[in-house]
Structures are given as structure tokens and as C-alpha cells.
Amino acid sequence: MTDTLIKMQNVDKFFGDFQALKNINLEVKRGERIVICGPSGSGKSTLIRCINRLEKHNNGHIFIAGKELTDQVKDIDAVRREVGMVFQSFNLFPHMTIVKNLMLAQRLVRKIKKPEAHKTAMHFLERVKIAEQADKYPVQLSGGQQQRVAIARALCMKPEIILFDEPTSALDPEMINEVLEVMTDLAKEGMTMICVTHEMGFARSVADRIIFMDEGEIVEEAVPEEFFDNPKNERTKQFLSQILTH
């Protein structure tokens, strides 16, 4: 399948007078893995948050599976059902056990009955190798475990695509790999994903395309080999030399 899942056309985003996104054009096909990188404040988060309407774009058009994102609540709800998101700070619901974290939206949004929601939750907890923690509370888990739960929670909604916003940058170094492994598995299974990350090893091995952003613009867009070995733009070169020496 090569049909277009996400299409952004001439998208601008302003925070007051400040322009955070400048004329963004981006197409993501079903099954594609996109990595977005760029310096702090370049608009990476803002870009993916526009895709599920956590931020509202000011100009241009965004289509998700052919449906345009407008102010209509119905459209936003429909889009959010298809688009999962994983945050830097996990954002698990602290007052619910792990398995309840995974069941809540299934029950409320998908209207799935309790036994089936529970089954789905346990299935995905097993997939992120954490089923034995099902009845614990988020504070009882390590950062890496919490992030895997957050990924499982997004998967329970059976989304068409998952957006990741720096999923490993709040983690201690020894926990980064367990999360990247889960994400790599997902990629192998054909999940469409857009991932903001500075894990260049992951980007090189998993991404179909890497997008470099700076000051609200997409500066460079290339397949990994080209991006790392032969970057065209000066700003990309500078960014890569900084990040790869660290």
C-alpha cells in the first residue's frame, strides 16, 4: 500500500507574532517511518502536534487519511482516533493502574466492553514486555517502563499512525534502548510513524526519510544514507557535526 496517510500543505503556525512553522509541506505514506530532527525551538514538536490538533495551524491544509483537519469537533475526534501520540514525559494517568491506563480510552472513545478492553490491554502490555506490571501504578515503574506503557496505551487504540515526540530524551541512558527496541519492532511490523528524536543510530537504521528542521522550516529531507553521508544544506551539516561529536 502506498496511499497517502498524512498531507500537510503550506502549513503556517503562529504563537502570537512568533511564527513557529513556516510553509510546511509534508507527505507521509502508509507504512512510512519519518524521523524529524533539528535544534531546540525549531518547531519539531509544533509540527507533529498540529497533526493531531494539540496545536491549531493558522494557514494551509492538513489531511489525515484524506480527511481535512478543520475546527469541526467531529473531524478532530475522528483524526485523534487514527493518530496515536507518545510524549517525552510519558504522561500516564497517575491515579490509574497500568492496565486501567490502557483501558480508559478504549472504553470511553472506542466504546469497547470491559473484558475485551482488558484483553487488548494485556495483549499490548505483553508486546512491550511489561505484562507483569499491569496492576501497579505509574510511579512504581521506571522511566523506560513507563514509556513502554505509554506506547502500549497508544497501540490499544489501533491507530493508523503514531507520533513520537522525543520519546527517549527524558530517560536515563540505560533505559533508552529498551524503548528504542519497542519502536524498532513496531517499525518492522509496518506501523506508520513520525518520530522526533536525536537518536541518530535509530534514525539511520529505521527511518525511510529524515527531515531536518530549523527556525520553523523544513530545511532538508532525505533518505538516511544521503542525510548522514552527503547532507546538502549548511545548517544540516553544522547540526550533524554538533550532534555526532557528542
Binding site: 493531531n52 494539540l54 475526534d77 485523534r80 482516533r81 493518530v83 496515536g84 501520540m85 510524549f87 514525559s89 504522561n91 500516564l92 494517568f93 497517575p94 480508559l104 480510552a105 470511553l108 472513545v109 505509554a150 496505551r153 497508544a154 487504540m157
Partner: peptide
């Protein structure tokens, strides 16, 4: 925490 509510939105909660 605002992030918790954003996670709710992202999952489609009204």
C-alpha cells in the same frame, strides 16, 4: 499536570 490532559486529548477523550 497539563501533559496528562494532553495525553487524554491525544487518545480522543472529549
Amino acid at each position: 499536570d497539563h501533559g496528562i490532559l494532553e495525553a487524554g486529548s491525544a487518545l480522543g477523550l472529549s
